[in-house]
């Protein structure tokens, strides 16, 4: 039933000054890239990809940005939230060498995908990109599954100085990858897509959502592709045909908002 189930937060951890992880009891299977609708009673309900996927519990990792994430940020062990889902199609993680790229809070979604690949013993490289090293999280968690974690910072405070998309281009020219999987700012993902010539590409797309079950049309892209139902992970072939990918999204009223 697509209505929130009330569950308790069983663990919290601070990742940076304004990024936090909440783990909650929510048994069941799901794949990396799928998302939940998280209800904060009296505040809002927002879509959020899983950052931890265990048999009995799941986790979300988010940055304090608006009313909903600020309310979540204040929550502690024992507090109640409503959860429904998992929804949508996650990443299709296949054998062969995969390059994972997480930008900003997209690192949360990418990390759980890298963990999945590592558990299957698939070979992978990972780039995590942030503006400044203070915003970096999950680097140590990733190092448990992968020998080398590439870090990029816009200001050069750690690792490669520049955008994650530029570091991606560099790695793509040096190494051979079967596929590229990414989650992060849409402009970054679009640049990565154009750099992937023959390499298979998948990206997790974020849009304002309401129903999350393919009914309301709030999150539609292109010719009625529902991010909540056909997405949130789309392949490169599909994204190349969507003119608004990396260009604009829609706000709650349906007005276009250009990406900056």
């Amino acid at each position: 039933m697509n209505k929130p189930t009330i569950t308790k937060i069983i663990k919290t951890q601070m990742e940076t000054k304004d990024i936090k992880t909440l783990k909650f009891y929510y048994p069941g299977k799901m794949s990396p890239g799928q998302f939940f609708m998280i209800w904060i009673p009296g505040v809002d309900e927002i879509p959020m990809s899983a950052s931890y996927i265990n048999k009995e519990d799941k986790g979300i990792t988010f940055k304090k940005v608006g009313a909903a994430t600020s309310a979540l940020f204040k929550m502690n062990k024992g507090d109640k939230i409503g959860v429904r889902g998992p929804y949508g199609n996650g990443f299709n993680i296949k054998r062969g060498k995969t390059l994972f790229i997480g930008g900003g809070t997209g690192i949360a979604t990418i990390t759980v995908a890298v963990e999945f690949a590592a558990n299957k013993k698939f070979s992978s490289d990972v780039i995590i990109g942030v503006k400044n090293k203070k915003e970096l999280f999950f680097e140590n968690r990733l190092k448990k599954f992968i020998n080398k974690v590439y870090v990029s910072t816009d200001d050069g405070s750690k690792g490669y100085k520049g955008f994650a998309s530029d570091l991606t281009k560099h790695l793509l020219s040096k190494n051979k990858y079967t596929s590229v999987l990414t989650c992060g700012p849409e402009i970054m993902m679009k640049q990565i897509l154009s750099a992937c010539k023959d390499t298979q590409f998948q990206a997790s797309i974020e849009r304002y959502m309401k129903c999350s079950v393919g009914l309301c049309g709030q999150c539609c892209l292109g010719n009625g592709l529902r991010v909540c139902k056909e997405g949130p992970v789309f392949d490169g072939k599909t994204l190349k045909k969507i003119p608004e990918f990396g260009v604009y999204k829609r706000d709650a009223s349906g007005r276009k908002i250009k990406f900056k």
């Binding site: 039933m1 209505k3 505040v43 309900e45 079950v213 349906g254």
Partner: peptide, 26 residues
């Protein structure tokens, strides 16, 4: 333009859906 109501705006019940979008439109 109207943003409509905050979420939850749509939930499923036993034999249908309950919604209150709040006339969001551009």
């Amino acid at each position: 333009s109207r943003d409509g109501y905050p979420n939850p705006t749509v939930i499923e019940l036993e034999t249908g859906f309950l919604n209150a979008m709040g006339l969001p439109n551009p």
